[in-house]
Amino acid sequence: MAVVLIVAEIKNGEVRKPTLELLAQAGRLGLEAHALLAGAGVSTLADTLAGHGAAKVYVSDDPSLKTPFPGQITQLADTAAGKSSATMVWFSPSEVSRAAAPALAARKGGSYASGLNSLQADGAGWTGTRQAMATKVVQKIKLSGPFQVMVFSSGAFEAGGAPKAAQTETLPPPPVNPQLSLKEVAVEEQKGEVDLGEARVIVTVGRGAKDPDGVAFVKKLADALGAGYGSTRAVVDSGWRPHSSQVGQTGRSVAPEIYLAVGVSGAIQHLAGMSGSKKIVAVNKDPEAPIFSVADYGVVGDLFKVLPVWLEELGRLKK
C-alpha cells in the first residue's frame, strides 16, 4: 500500500481539524497514512492522530519546535518520509507549510501544488483541483513523478475517528539554521475567540465599522452567535484587529456554513478567502458594493441600524 506522510498541524494543544480531514481522506483513497507530529509538548497527541487513521506517528517533541522555522519542518518531513517510504507528503494550509512544503518538493525534486481541494488517482500520478487567479478559475492539476508534495485547503474533506493507541517513533529535533534566530512571537490571538478554521458561523468586520468602537460593536454580533470573528485587511492594517483574524488571500481561507460580512466592500482578494462559504450574508450601505455579487442575502443599509435589530432578536430568541 502506498504511504502518505501527513504533517500534523497543532494549535493550542490540539490537532487542528484540517489535519484530521487529511488523515480521513488518506483512508478513503486507499493510502496508508503516517503522521509527523512536531512541536513542544505534543507527544500526547499521537493517539489522536492514530485514532483518525495514522498507522504510524513520527514524534519530534522538543522546546526548539515551539515556534518552528519552516526549515526544521522540511527536515523532519524529509526524514519521516524516508523512514516510512512515503511517496507523498500532505500539509494543511498553515504559515509554516507555506515555506516548508515547497522547500521539501525542491529538496526531493518532486511535484508540488498548494490550495488543493480534491484529489484522485490518475494513472501513475494524481489529479487534483485548486482555485487560482483569486478564485476566478479552477485548475485541474496533474502531479506526477516519484514524489509529490501537496498542501490542501481546509474543509476539503470530511474528518472522522476517535483516539486510539498510536505506534510511534521518536525523531531527534533538527538543528536550527544558525543564520536564524527567533526574537519574539507576538501572540495576537484574542483569548476565547472561535477558531476561524473551525467555526460554523463567521462574522467579518470591514472598514465600514469606522473605528475601534465600531469594531467592538460588530463583535457583539459574533459573540451573540457564538461565531468566529474575522476581519478585512483594511481593519487589520488600521490596527483594530490582529493579523490572525484576516480573511482573504493573504489571510485565512475559510468556508463556514454562514459568513456574515459587515461593512466589507468585497475586494477580490477578500472574496478569494471566503467565497467557499455555504451561505453569504452582507450588510453594506452601498448597493453597488461588490460583496453583493456573492451574497445570498444582501442587506443594503447602515450596519449601525441593522445590527441592533439582529442583536435584539437574538436576545429574544435566547430567552
Binding site: 518532486g110 511535484s111 508540488y112 501544488a113 489529479t127 483541483t129 482555485q131 478564485t135 476566478k136 478559475v137 479552477v138 485548475q139 485541474k140 492539476i141 496533474k142 502531479l143 506526477s144 513523478g145 467565497s275 453569504i280 448597493p287 453583493f292 456573492v294 451574497a295 445570498d296 442575502y297 444582501g298 442587506v299 443594503v300 443599509g301 447602515d302 441600524k305 441593522v306 435589530v309
Partner: peptide, 24 residues
C-alpha cells in the same frame, strides 16, 4: 512534474436576494 491539465470556470453561485428599504 506538475502540469495544469485544464482550466474550468468556478462553480456558479445561485443568485442571491438583495433587500432595500427601511433598515429596521
Amino acid at each position: 512534474l506538475t502540469q495544469i491539465a485544464e482550466f474550468q470556470p468556478p462553480a456558479a453561485r445561485a443568485a442571491g436576494r438583495k433587500f432595500t428599504g427601511e433598515p429596521e
